[in-house]
């Protein structure tokens, strides 16, 4: 059996790759749910600040754009996740739907900043989206 620093290094690398490569579908989707919660909560906070006149519209727009990017990233991750059980498949559909609701709410908020629709109306929409995602935390 090979010994020495090079062999030890290879073992550490192999162990690390094994650890990172073995992330389960459920864990990946859970992580995406956390990402979605953070994005929707960010959007809710900045919309409330905009309604209270505590932030600039340019900053709010940027924040909502960043939140949207996060949600799109999370939805892409989930939609590209291979599932091997019925439970995981059902969970994936629920997560995708919840992320879609979050995305709709963030898009509506961004549109409202541009004068299309009411910004007030997006607050409950964002709250519902956050609740929907939080219900999915903890896995299938």
């Amino acid at each position: 059996m090979p010994t020495g620093p090079a062999a030890s290094g290879c073992l550490v690398l192999a162990a690390a790759l094994l650890l990172t490569g073995c992330t389960s579908a459920a864990a990946t989707m859970e992580q995406a749910v956390g990402q979605g919660v953070a994005a929707v909560e960010t959007a809710r906070l900045v919309v409330e600040q905009e309604l209270d006149d505590r932030t600039f519209t340019t900053t709010a727009k940027t924040t909502l754009g960043d939140a949207r990017r996060e949600l799109v990233g999370a939805a892409t991750t989930v939609s590209e996740t291979d599932v091997s059980t019925e439970t995981d498949a059902a969970y994936r559909d629920e997560v995708l739907a919840a992320l879609g609701d979050g995305l709709d709410a963030v898009n509506d908020a961004r549109a409202a900043l541009g004068g299309v629709g009411s910004l007030d109306a997006t607050v409950p929409q964002l709250e519902d989206a956050a609740d929907g995602l939080e219900d999915l935390e903890g896995g299938p």
């Binding site: 909560e41 906070l45 600040q49 932030t55 900053t59 940027t62 924040t63």
Partner: peptide
């Protein structure tokens, strides 16, 4: 439960506190 992933999130607490 907001994990920071963008600079826009870094300034949220400051706006919250001092507008």
């Amino acid at each position: 439960a907001i994990d920071v992933t963008s600079l826009s999130q870094v300034v949220l607490p400051v706006a919250e506190a001092g507008g």
